[in-house]
Computed example of a mutant assay.
Amino acid sequence: MKEKQNLRTQIMHGIAAAAVLSMLVSPAFGAQVPATAPGAHATLPAGVVARVNGVAIAQSEVDAAVRQSGQADTPALRTSLKNQLIARELFRQVAQKQHYDTHADVKAGIEQAKAMLMMQAYLRDAIKPTPVTDADVKAKYDAIVASLGQNEYKPSGIMVKDAATAKTVLDQLKKGGDFAQLAKQYSQGPSAAQGGTLNWVSFKTPIVEGQTQGWPKPVAEALVKLPQGAVSSEPIQVGDAFWILRVDQMRPTQIPTFDQSRAQLRKELEQVAAAKATAQVVTDLVKSAHIEK
């Protein structure tokens, strides 16, 4: 019963929040906020766009709200966002006046937010990824180019977990079944929802273990042997999984220039460096901690 009450409370809070948000973003809301509140001075200090019971709302707050909105910066948007900030300040003031800051759930939320901000600040200082140099980016580019073959392939794949299901899929394909629909129905691979469609890929032949861009070697070997439009005649087993491939398109390998690839490669290398640095911080903390499970 208590769980049902909690769920009902959450739903009602969600409905209330949605109603408030809908009101704030509606064009009619702007008309409900007067340009100058009764008793307020018409002239505001530089950098202040509004005052709510003496509390200033800065121009910088509106600027930040515009950036966060992701919308085109227009006078109408700025007016709408300013009115939302006014409403938010009104809500804050009345909640504080009625001592909502003493409510248990508010205190718990403040503590959670405080803990999250502390962790984020600590991680910004503690995680020191190894800087990615221009030489690192060029080396990564050269390694990728060296791993590419003469042709590249746009495949689709169906990955299942047992031989019987693989046979069922192949039998249906041989009877004219739609590959994409069968992928959505049977595949447990990462692109099942997209009908098994996979990204363009190229392998230098003969296939060498560790130079297959993350593909299992048996699958890469089977792929380069298939002509365009063909489906693998037998399931390709990789551990406990069974793959069925189709080559949707094939073309001579198209290699982007280094300048075209530089930004993306740098981003990927920086992500790897950040992950390594984070893992090292966690390892060091675990070693010095007393953890009971």
Rank of each mutant, 00 (worst) to 15 (best):
Q120H: 13
A121M: 13
Y122P: 00
Y122K: 07
D125L: 09
A126E: 02
A126M: 05
I127S: 08
P129I: 02
P129H: 04
T130V: 08
T130W: 01
T130G: 11
P131N: 09
P131S: 10
D134E: 11
A135Y: 01
A135M: 07
D136Y: 01
D136F: 03
Y141H: 06
A143H: 04
A143N: 09
I144E: 10
I144S: 05
V145H: 04
A146V: 07
L148F: 11
Q150N: 09
Q150Y: 05
N151M: 14
Y153L: 02
Y153R: 01
Y153K: 00
Y153H: 02
K154F: 14
S156N: 03
G157V: 07
G157E: 15
G157N: 09
V160M: 06
A164G: 08
T165K: 07
T165A: 08
A166I: 09
K167F: 06
V169I: 13
V169Q: 09
L170Y: 01
D171P: 01
D171C: 03
L173F: 02
L173M: 03
K175F: 12
K175Q: 15
G176K: 01
G177Q: 09
A180Q: 11
A180K: 10
Q181M: 14
A183G: 06
K184A: 15
Q185G: 03
S187I: 01
Q188F: 00
G189F: 00
G189L: 00
A193D: 12
A193N: 06
A193P: 10
Q194G: 12
Q194F: 12
L198N: 07
L198A: 05
N199L: 11
W200S: 04
W200T: 06
V201S: 02
V201M: 06
T205D: 03
I207D: 02
G210F: 09
G210I: 10
Q211H: 14
T212M: 12
W215F: 15
